[in-house]
Design a binder for these strands. Structure first.
Lengths: 276, 276
DNA sequence: CTCACCGGCAGAACGCTGTTCATTAAGATA
DNA sequence: TATCTTAATGAACAGCGTTCTGCCGGTGAG
């Protein structure tokens, strides 16, 4: 504070327009010491903005106002970060307590909730597809799912596959949803706010394309064009899910004459979504 | 040939040590003019050797003894090349003529054949997952699949989803197979010839891990550990497939008492793979 | 109070990627 | 023989994941 002040002249009193960063606030606002959680958080922001192909370590670092190498002090690799994002997507996910009388509804709710979580971040199904839920944080979820299957009365060999089957279905369905969405956005233009109308337009184009196929060679494709490309994917998701649930139900012993009106087990007893 | 020869002086007679390329035979042996087909072929070689992550345009070019930019005269982008590989994997795939009495067997054969094709090239399920079979070359296959569903008697809304459901299942299953295989190889060491013993060892480790979980918290996971990680994936594949087929069968009208011993339609009539 | 330490971040660098550009060599055509 | 077309080259650009070295500020010991 003596003559040393000549070497480091006291900066002029911070001018009003940059008053908001008084103490060493150039890049790192001194707060938030860059934890794993903050990195994951920033990664989700970049993911939603630029998609999985645009999710680079440099972009995540830029989102945090930090250099790339700083990330590697908390995250060992990009794969590590992706795995963190995958597990964080499903932590806190409420699993049902197994109820043998409601296992179909429980699985329906489960599947729909998983799909919603996957849809809550762009390209999340692609990330989910590349990972296996056998990490320590996600094992309880697998256990809870198995519990639903087994207490419902499914044979062990069926229960062992059912979880994979349903999870694969959800991931694959949402993945495909995202692909169509991307294709529509890319076809229409870069503006992401235009995704909606472009999607509807593209669905119409697809139906027109199917309808334009030679009737002699593609009778079934023409007949089902209106069903394969629909406005809302919710119905399609439920139908595929119902096929799986009915397949599982076929492995239950026949309800032994105690059958209430909602007795599970009979493969044709539970009402289909709307299979006229 | 007048004084213009001074501008382009005739090169000295090729010195003896570079005599081996008398007529433009340095890299391209003048034969095989680098068609799309040849590029795809080389891409498959690189894919099998280095996996999808090691499949770069430069590697493909090197495999052909050609520079990168030469590829772009025949292929518009890497995505284009991947799509070419995807469609070529399934061109020439024999689809069954729909037979209402054998639709389950036909679908089983179909699914197993598709799985074998996916397994015939490394990481092929990852490529398949990223594409939709709605290209001109693959549309007949979709049509044939729909024909099987509809002539079997499935409602249209079910038939429209069944193709996606089965395809997604196959892709997802093989994808997961490959993931475990990669993880085992990567854990054991880079030597690809060691893949087999490492896989078995890893399956044992997984089972041990499941068995070591606290019995109080993971009873079902412990009970099914031996079924979820098996030596051969063939059984598991068939079981998941059978669940789907039974689910589809549940949408058929009850067989009207004409039933032979192999009558399709009854969801519990066809024998499960081995669901004790 | 001083000094050494040490963790967390910056900056630069390496080798790789997909893609584009101008250039060149060779064959075909007139 | 002169021109045109084709196909491949080599260099370049921007970006990627990852690693290494060095700085800088806060902390505990003497």
């Amino acid at each position: 504070m003596t003559d040393a002040a000549a070497d480091t002249p006291t900066p002029p009193p911070t001018s009003p327009w940059e008053r908001e960063r008084p103490a060493r606030a150039r890049v790192a606002p001194v707060r938030a010491p860059l934890s794993r959680e903050r990195i994951v958080e920033a990664a989700f922001i970049v993911l939603d903005r630029q998609g999985l192909d645009g999710l680079s370590m440099r972009q995540v670092a830029a989102e945090l106002g930090v250099t790339v190498s700083a990330l590697y002090a908390h995250v060992s690799s990009k794969d590590d970060l992706l795995e963190l994002m995958y597990t964080r997507l499903f932590t806190g996910f409420a699993m049902p307590a197994p109820d043998p009388e409601r296992w179909r509804e429980q699985l329906r709710d489960f599947a729909r909730s998983v799909r919603q979580r996957l849809l809550s971040h762009r390209d999340m199904a692609r990330i989910s597809m590349a990972h296996v839920p056998f990490t320590a944080e996600l094992l309880p979820h697998v256990e809870a799912l198995l519990a639903v299957f087994r207490t419902a009365g499914l044979p062990d060999r069926i229960a062992a596959e059912a979880g994979d089957l349903i999870s694969t279905y959800i991931d694959g369905f949402v993945l495909e949803e995202g692909m169509w969405q991307d294709r529509a956005a890319q076809l229409g233009g870069g503006d992401s706010s235009m995704a909606r109308p472009d999607w509807r337009e593209m669905a119409g184009d697809m139906q027109d394309y199917f309808a334009s196929l030679p009737a002699k060679d593609f009778p079934h494709l023409r007949a089902l064009a209106g069903l394969m490309v629909t406005d809302s994917s919710d119905e399609r998701f439920d139908i595929g899910l119902e096929i799986i649930l009915r397949g599982l139900a076929s492995y239950l012993p026949e309800p032994a004459a105690d059958g209430g009106p909602d007795a599970p087990g009979a493969p044709d007893a539970p009402r289909p979504p709307d299979a006229t």
